[in-house]
Simulated assay, not measured.
Amino acid sequence: MPVAATYLVAAFAEIAGCFAFWAVFRLGRSVFWLAPGLAALVLFAYALTWVDAAAAGRAFAAYGGVYVAASLVWLWLVENVQPDRWDLIGGAICVLGAALVVMGPR
């Protein structure tokens, strides 16, 4: 699986898992939301092991930019809150930083 696809799987699994906890503890949803939330968090952690990287920290750092961008997509599509220009500028900076981590000369 391409690295970008792997990071997207990881990001949406992490966001979904964290959102399940948010839904229970902040939105008053049933505790039964926690089971799929935990499964999603396990998928997130496992998906990051699919990245072919010499160092876990570098893979995780690069993932961070993808996570921020995916969170803004989640904000818009799931929570129905349109990201503002500051969200978009901040997300772009994070993605640029992730690209530097991945593609920087070594």
Rank of each mutant, 00 (worst) to 15 (best):
P2C: 00
V3T: 09
A4C: 01
A4Y: 10
A5K: 01
L8W: 15
V9P: 08
A10K: 02
I15D: 02
G17E: 04
G17S: 10
F19S: 00
A20I: 04
F21G: 02
A23K: 12
R26I: 04
G28I: 05
R29I: 06
F32L: 09
A39Q: 04
A40D: 02
L41W: 08
L41N: 08
F44K: 00
A45V: 02
Y46E: 00
A47H: 03
T49I: 02
T49R: 05
W50T: 00
V51I: 04
A53F: 08
A56E: 04
A59S: 11
A61D: 10
A61Q: 11
A62F: 08
G65R: 07
V68D: 12
A69P: 15
L75V: 12
L77V: 14
L77R: 15
N80L: 07
P83A: 04
P83F: 11
P83T: 05
R85A: 11
R85M: 12
G90A: 01
G90Y: 09
G91R: 10
G91Y: 13
A92V: 15
C94E: 07
V95K: 08
L96I: 10
A98S: 11
A98G: 13
A99Y: 14
A99P: 12
L100M: 06
L100F: 14
V101M: 03
V101D: 01
V102M: 04
V102N: 04
M103Y: 15
G104Y: 14
P105K: 03
R106G: 07
